[in-house]
Design a protein around this nucleic acid. Sequence first.
DNA 1: AAACTATACAACCGCGTCCAC
DNA 2: AGTGGACGCGGTTGTATAGTT
Length: 308
Amino acid sequence: MGCNSMEKISKPKQKHRKGLWSPEEDEKLRNYILKHGHGCWSSVPINAGLQRNGKSCRLRWINYLRPGLKRGMFSAQEEETILNLHRILGNKWSQIAQHLPGRTDNEIKNFWHSYLKKKVAKPEEVESFSKHQFTNSNSNFQEDVESPIKLINTVSGFHPFGNEEGLSIESNQLSANSQTLLPPKILFAEWLTIFDSTNNNNIDNDIFNNGENNPQANQFLHYNSKDMDFTQSMDFQGQGFNQGLMYNEGSCSSEELYSGVGSGCVFDSQLKFEDQTTPENEFGDLLFSGDNEIIPNDFVMSNNLRYI
DNA sequence: AAACTATACAACCGCGTCCAC
DNA sequence: AGTGGACGCGGTTGTATAGTT
């Protein structure tokens, strides 16, 4: 899956290093992926000159090296988001992480085990929180909540469907199929840097032109970042679509993107939507709601997926 | 100062799923 | 249809550091 035959061949057996990553290893991995993309993870350590297995490289990249990650303390809002989503979804850390831009599932999981779990275990400490969030705090939340989408909106400020009336889910469906609660998951089939809104340079233009004239840009077009989803890269807090889609604010040149130091980058891609019983077009409306039309109006619909 | 304990978080492991062959 | 490899997820372990005795 995801590896072509050329990438699968000639993998020498070697003893893989384990344990903490050194700064040198981080540097090798970062440089390699920013330059070539990860492609087939099992080939990454070989090509990058690392004595690790592909799985370890993938984890290190996703949880630590990937651009756009937040570090440091969780905010009160993030904490509330995790608590509420955990009530609905349980230990679905990856799904919870989709609502927390810049946070990884591993980070959220650790935060839960080290802090939130204990907090929830002490009812007096969460009582005020529960009363604040839900009008009827003395009974089962899953039976009381009137709209799961409203809940998600409340806790994360995220309005995936434009209006909550667009989705009606009976409350007793919550535990039966928590998948239906999620906003449409949008995956980057290919992670592309498109442009620096203030500084169109040659690389950017070449990328615009599908990398035809620039090998480096062409390589970049093959960057496979299907790990990223749109909720992690889009800023829903009100900034324009022409800025801050990846890092929430500002913009960055492609050099900054390559080096991972930019304060904000704009992505476009062959965006792929996972339709999770959402009404059609409503999320599309959201994507069109900015000053700049970033999504061409040519959705390709299938049973389960929406492609742009 | 040393030993011990608690905590946070990075990383590993096993399993389920997907996909190419 | 069966098989094997790769990926992604969640549970668990390992390790570094801070705090306490």
